[in-house]
Simulated scan of single mutants.
Amino acid sequence: MANYQLLEPFQFNNGVSLKNKVVMAPMTTMSSFYNGKITQDELNYFAARAGGPGMVITSVANVSEIGKGFEGELSVASDDMLPGLTKLAATIKKDGAKAILQIFNAGRKSTTSVLRGETPVSASAVAAEFPPESETPRALEQEEIEQIIVDFGTATRRAIQAGFDGVELHGANTYLLQQFYSAHSNRRTDEWGATLEKRMKFPLAVIKEVTETIKQYAPSSFLLGYRVSPEEVETPGIRLEDTLYLAKQIQNQIDYLHLFMGSYKRTSLNDPNDTTPILEQFAARVGRKTPLIGIGSVETPEDANEVLDNGGDLVAVGRELLREPQWVQKIQSGDEASIRNTMSLSDMEELSIPGAMQTYLQESFGSVMNFTPDGKKAENYQNQAAPMEGFEKKL
């Protein structure tokens, strides 16, 4: 067996220990019930993959009904969800992995149809540029903003009750936390907008609310993570320096920072003259004080080690764990030759991929999945956004 860094244990600053440095990335399953309750198909999906990684981050869960982003989405918006969430946490933790519940509000990335007639909300009444048919949201009122902040705290309390080891705030993929920070989606002139510092007020308020909830209800070992998309391609919009600044501001308030990119080798989408990989820039700016999760097109143990060599403290694996649920175990046993890096459409049932997710992968992400029999290799996302990032840009 090769001496891979990814198999080494890891300890967070608050004392939480992981059996290895591999994180199962959060991936949308589209497979929860209509009301957000967990299904047995989802439990089977996580059970098939949770044995190897040191930490598993769930599919995203909405913190309130107005924050639901798509059909088949997990919810943590009411106490009715607790029995299912408790089963999910226990399923993930069965073989020693830490279970992290990712929570969010989709904001303007939702639709009137998904919200059963309600208009999507955001910082301002500005439609997203991608997809082109995005609806124009309604600008949130002061009281609504304050309620959503509370909703994040209440969702965290439920995650603690359900037995999770932490929560991850989804501030990426152009969802509501990112929408408030972005000059594209936030055109407010009150205390929640107008300047970069004021646009940052909402994510900071959510972090504060969640932190206070953790102190009140959770043991000291409970983790708080934050996920970011490094850049937006809209003008105006978030640029790399903006997100590096945000990371610096929150680094002492979170237990880890999770980057979201289609490739761990990604360089700036907006500045072709900036050839330093984004992962390395975050590692240099945030440093080892706040653990950094690197992600993007990790398929082999060599890829994972490169992430760790280039500044990641942990490495998130997504699509490869769909194709090969035993990825970590096969590396541990020296059986890398048997690792699948392609996926046959006929194998998805065997791989415990829920039926709704099977359709979703084929229709929306066929270009990134290495599906056979067409034999098409997923594109290199070093210089372009991947479909799952919520926007499109090619250089």
Results as ranks from 00 to 15, higher is better:
residue 3 N to Q: 09
residue 6 L to P: 00
residue 6 L to F: 06
residue 8 E to F: 00
residue 11 Q to L: 07
residue 14 N to A: 06
residue 21 K to P: 08
residue 24 M to T: 05
residue 24 M to N: 01
residue 26 P to K: 11
residue 26 P to E: 01
residue 33 F to I: 09
residue 35 N to I: 06
residue 36 G to P: 12
residue 43 L to Y: 05
residue 43 L to G: 02
residue 45 Y to A: 07
residue 48 A to Y: 10
residue 49 R to M: 04
residue 57 I to D: 10
residue 57 I to V: 15
residue 58 T to L: 07
residue 60 V to F: 04
residue 61 A to E: 05
residue 61 A to Y: 00
residue 69 G to M: 09
residue 69 G to W: 07
residue 75 S to Y: 06
residue 77 A to E: 04
residue 78 S to A: 08
residue 86 T to N: 07
residue 86 T to P: 08
residue 86 T to S: 12
residue 88 L to H: 03
residue 89 A to I: 10
residue 90 A to W: 10
residue 92 I to Q: 00
residue 96 G to W: 01
residue 97 A to G: 06
residue 113 S to F: 12
residue 113 S to L: 12
residue 117 G to T: 12
residue 121 V to E: 06
residue 122 S to T: 04
residue 122 S to H: 09
residue 125 A to M: 07
residue 130 F to H: 07
residue 130 F to E: 08
residue 133 E to T: 08
residue 134 S to G: 03
residue 139 A to W: 03
residue 140 L to F: 10
residue 140 L to D: 05
residue 143 E to Y: 12
residue 145 I to C: 08
residue 147 Q to H: 10
residue 152 F to S: 03
residue 157 R to W: 06
residue 158 R to S: 09
residue 159 A to D: 11
residue 160 I to M: 11
residue 160 I to L: 02
residue 163 G to K: 03
residue 165 D to K: 04
residue 165 D to Y: 05
residue 167 V to D: 13
residue 167 V to Q: 12
residue 172 A to L: 01
residue 176 L to C: 12
residue 181 Y to N: 09
residue 197 E to N: 11
residue 203 P to M: 14
residue 206 V to K: 01
residue 212 E to P: 07
residue 216 Q to M: 15
residue 220 S to P: 10
residue 222 F to N: 11
residue 223 L to V: 13
residue 224 L to F: 15
residue 225 G to E: 04
residue 231 E to W: 07
residue 236 P to R: 07
residue 239 R to N: 11
residue 239 R to I: 08
residue 242 D to L: 05
residue 244 L to H: 13
residue 246 L to I: 00
residue 250 I to F: 04
residue 250 I to H: 00
residue 251 Q to P: 03
residue 259 L to N: 04
residue 260 F to A: 15
residue 265 K to R: 15
residue 267 T to A: 02
residue 278 I to T: 09
residue 278 I to V: 15
residue 281 Q to P: 11
residue 281 Q to C: 03
residue 282 F to G: 01
residue 283 A to C: 06
residue 289 K to R: 13
residue 295 I to W: 04
residue 296 G to P: 01
residue 298 V to F: 00
residue 300 T to I: 07
residue 304 A to W: 04
residue 307 V to Q: 02
residue 311 G to P: 00
residue 312 G to I: 10
residue 312 G to N: 13
residue 320 E to L: 02
residue 324 E to L: 02
residue 329 Q to G: 02
residue 331 I to Q: 00
residue 334 G to I: 09
residue 337 A to I: 08
residue 337 A to R: 15
residue 340 R to P: 01
residue 342 T to N: 08
residue 342 T to P: 07
residue 343 M to L: 12
residue 345 L to W: 13
residue 349 E to T: 10
residue 350 E to A: 15
residue 350 E to G: 07
residue 353 I to Q: 05
residue 358 Q to L: 02
residue 358 Q to A: 09
residue 360 Y to Q: 02
residue 364 S to E: 13
residue 365 F to K: 15
residue 366 G to E: 11
residue 367 S to F: 13
residue 372 T to R: 14
residue 375 G to M: 06
residue 383 N to E: 15
residue 388 M to D: 01
residue 389 E to T: 06
